[in-house]
Design a protein around this nucleic acid. Structure first.
Lengths: 396, 396
DNA sequence: CGACTTTTGCTTGTACTTCGACTTAAGTCA
DNA sequence: TGACTTAAGTCGAAGTACAAGCAAAAGTCG
């Protein structure tokens, strides 16, 4: 009555251990791998052979000889396969193809309203993705996975948006299922702020385990990396700090139905609206940025005040999660110096010295690339996981 | 030139896999374990034999027969060994002995000022621990590990307090080293709020992955469990929300040097001080609790307002970490209903419906036991980890 | 009470993995 | 060029897990 059981002996799954060591791209010799893993050199050689068969690991130029036969080295072959990282905003979408090192090979940014609905947007995504792959001379078989950021709360485990306010038709839509049908690869979906946090952390602060990424644009949100991993919260809406009440906002109505929300005071549209009240002719954040560049005092003052408002909320966030780095990103970061100044002013005044003595507050270093970088990392994290590598080496 | 290497073949380390399955205390038959793990029955029998030799796993009464020989069952033997969980507050200490299921066998609470310094306090802890073990008829060899909570920030990896404000002489003290010398077992040290969060989550909400434990006593602090694991932050001071500024507090000085801190308005001493200003004769929180029990309106109003103040800070925390449960604990929870009412009033008014629709705000269910429970869990987590179990089965 | 069922403990042979030693390859240096 | 050094490939030995088989144990059911 036993179900048929394949000999479950650990098999070549152990190959993934060595692969994970080589993920960093550094070339290593068999002897080095042997001493790191504790496996015999002959075993390491077996594993490397299995990995070489997948193409993911390849030999690099041998190292210098130390008097005898020079050792050959092996390293991640970043060009073996690719992943796609996509970022969908309210009005625009960015698609990027990245190699296995997470380096972006090709990017395309297009106007593409998310409100067109999942079929239209994802349909376009599919054809566009194939186009990008063809442009790079790669086939669909080279694609390992897709990472995707959406402008709303997403249940990451299932990849379905949940009650997204600005994504009509997307609620509960099975995005990974659709991508699997269309491109034949798994899709990892997350909130756009979350993938920006991942992108920033991976690219700019690889050794930082506690980082807060704050996106200031049409809305305001935060991505939390704590203890080295992204925190999504119980319903995937962790970091939604846009509707926290701030002192200055008392009485000001927010579209959310509440009063005094941070987003109603410090978001891009809010800054523009405040400037219009002073008589300035600004339609959006681009106009504000222009004014700031021309040293318009009202504009600078408004941006700086927005920074103070954000800083007010961040003081609580800092006390709560105790990050070592806070990164400001999003479209408002184009006026980042003044925003940053406002944030710092409040944070360093109000927070306890213990929490701020090792805290850096910075602008995003990867800026508009953060999202697609993070999406690619998400895809790579899945595609190069021990489980996936185990499956790839075993089926040969 | 190779270092001598013992044949690293996986050996009996696999025994820990089966042990982790049995950690929950549920008895299981060999056949069940075989089908869960995918291992052959003969292999399962081997592993069980190794585990039985350690005493950690024992046979339980066989299950009901289904027509033939009834299967024998195996389960965690909770009484095989013990751990000690300790909680040190500013003035008092609690030591508990717990079995492998985390159930507390014996507790002792004593006045023991933390300010006496590490040698005095830990010396007392050592003799007291031995006394408790003897009282239970157990030897020191039965002790597996110690978990410990301290009233200040602790670098959990090393077990050393860092800049603790109320623990003179403890800064950087090697607590685990001391415990190892004294009792011969490893010690896991953490902030007291953190261990309370762990205790509450383990005992009351084992299925909740995102929980905030808020301790309101002499100070105010929070323990954050997010994504199923405790978040300690970059310097181990995550959750230090006592010195966040609140609206009502403008102009009120806090001992920390800042103004308007939550702790200066809503902590136990702060509530008592506010009541004294109305003419009430209250020295501490106990007196306040008495007044509340006698339906003193001023006292109830003060407690409720403190709840509102805490709720104000919690709205931001809720938006940020998106927990599904918030637990209020600490000595002020003796007037918990009114405190809770204040917290709920503000939270449900100010937070977004998305964040609160699945949020429960409750009083601690394990109350004063939370800390030692959590400390025991910390100790068990280490002592029953796959590594530890692997070491135990291998040395036989 | 005896036949039947189911689990257990034990044994055996096979398949697979890992190890370590040995041989061969590929350089350096005198 | 030849001796030396270091790395890589090969292969048998050892050990583990597995499946299968069998006898004994411990129940149920007629």
């Amino acid at each position: 009555m036993e179900p048929p059981r394949k000999p479950s002996t650990l098999g070549f799954v152990g190959a993934s251990d060595i692969f994970q060591l080589l993920r960093d791209g550094q070339p290593r010799t068999r002897a080095e791998l042997s001493s790191i893993t504790g496996l015999a050199r002959s075993t390491v050689a077996l594993r490397l052979e299995a990995l070489r068969a997948t193409g993911l690991i390849g030999p690099t130029g041998g190292a210098a000889s130390s008097g005898g036969r020079p050792p050959s080295q092996f390293a991640l072959n970043p060009t073996a396969r690719v992943v796609i990282g996509a970022d969908f905003g309210a009005t625009h979408a960015t698609i990027a193809v990245a190699d296995l090192a997470g380096d972006i090979l090709l990017t395309r940014r297009t106007a593409r309203p998310i409100a067109d609905g999942p079929e239209a947007v994802l349909g376009w995504f599919g054809t566009e993705s194939r186009g990008l792959l063809a442009e790079l001379g790669r086939t669909e078989a080279d694609l390992l996975a897709v990472g995707m950021g959406l402008p709303g709360p997403v249940e990451h485990d299932t990849g379905r948006p949940v009650n997204p306010p600005i994504m009509p038709g997307w609620d509960g839509f099975d995005v990974p299922g659709w991508v699997l049908d269309e491109l034949g690869v798994p899709a990892l979906v997350d909130n756009d702020v979350n993938i920006m946090a991942i992108g920033e952390q991976t690219s700019s602060f690889p050794d930082v385990t506690d980082l807060l990424f704050v996106k200031v644009a049409t809305g305001i949100g935060a991505g939390i990396i704590s203890g080295g991993s992204l925190q999504r919260g119980a319903q995937g809406s962790a970091g939604d700090i846009g509707h926290v009440r701030i002192e200055r906002g008392s009485g000001i109505a927010c579209p959310c139905g509440n009063f005094g929300c941070l987003e109603a005071m410090a978001s891009g549209p809010a800054i523009a609206a405040q400037l219009r009240e002073t008589g300035a002719d600004v339609a959006n954040m681009n106009d504000v940025a222009d004014l700031v560049r021309h040293n318009d005092l009202d504009a600078i003052r408004a941006v700086r005040q927005a920074g103070r408002d954000i800083g007010e909320v961040l003081t609580t966030c800092i006390s709560l999660v105790n990050p070592s780095v806070i990164v400001l990103g999003g479209s408002v970061s184009r006026v980042g110096e003044h925003l940053l100044a406002g944030v710092r002013e409040v944070v360093y005044q109000r927070s306890t010295p213990l929490a701020t003595q090792h805290l850096s507050i910075l602008q995003s270093r990867v800026a508009e690339k953060a999202a697609v970088l993070g999406a690619s990392v998400l895809a790579l994290h899945h595609a190069l996981s021990p489980e996936s590598i185990g499956a790839m080496t075993e089926e040969l």
